[in-house]
């Protein structure tokens, strides 16, 4: 729903960032997050979906001290400050990996596979990394 002060800002598209890869093994998770932080400045409808190994990005208690790589997981907690509040995690992806929402570093909305599939089909732009 558009607020009155948003009316002159041009079209708002629904952007979903789909995260399906685990952190640290490859750079995709980190650089995807960098895109999301920039995207926040564009006043678009931004949501993040975590499914498959992407759910591992949100695991609490990441400690990268011994691998010499920056721990970027606190950034997920900062997303709220960028008005990025739609974080969706697929229930089935958590379950097969032995995780629950309690294992995650941020509050998320846990969706079933079917709910997530429907949500994906409502997007204008899907960015997969």
């Amino acid at each position: 729903m558009a607020e009155p002060w948003e009316e002159d800002e041009g079209p708002v598209k629904k952007f979903m960032y789909v995260n399906r890869k685990a952190p640290y093994g490859t750079i995709y998770a980190l650089e995807s997050l960098e895109v999301v932080l920039i995207a926040a400045a564009f006043d678009q409808d931004v949501s993040l979906a975590f499914l498959d190994d992407g759910v591992f990005q949100l695991k609490k208690g990441q400690d990268t001290g011994e691998i010499g790589v920056k721990n970027f997981s606190p950034t997920y907690r900062a997303l709220e400050g960028y008005d990025i509040e739609k974080l969706y995690v697929e229930k089935e992806s958590l379950e097969v990996r032995g995780l629950t929402a309690d294992d995650l570093i941020v509050p998320v909305e846990v969706l079933s596979q079917d709910e997530l599939s429907k949500l994906m089909d409502e997007q204008d732009v899907i960015l997969s990394f």
């Binding site: 079209p11 598209k13 952007f15 960098e34 895109v35 920039i38 995207a39 400045a41 564009f42 678009q44 204008d124 732009v125 899907i126 960015l127 997969s128 990394f129």
Partner: peptide
């Protein structure tokens, strides 16, 4: 240029196709 150029492409283009 910056990542904003990617977001702008997503806004301006009717379809975005990702290769990776």
């Amino acid at each position: 240029s910056g990542l904003g150029q990617l977001i702008e492409a997503g806004i301006q283009a009717e379809r975005l196709v990702v290769f990776g």
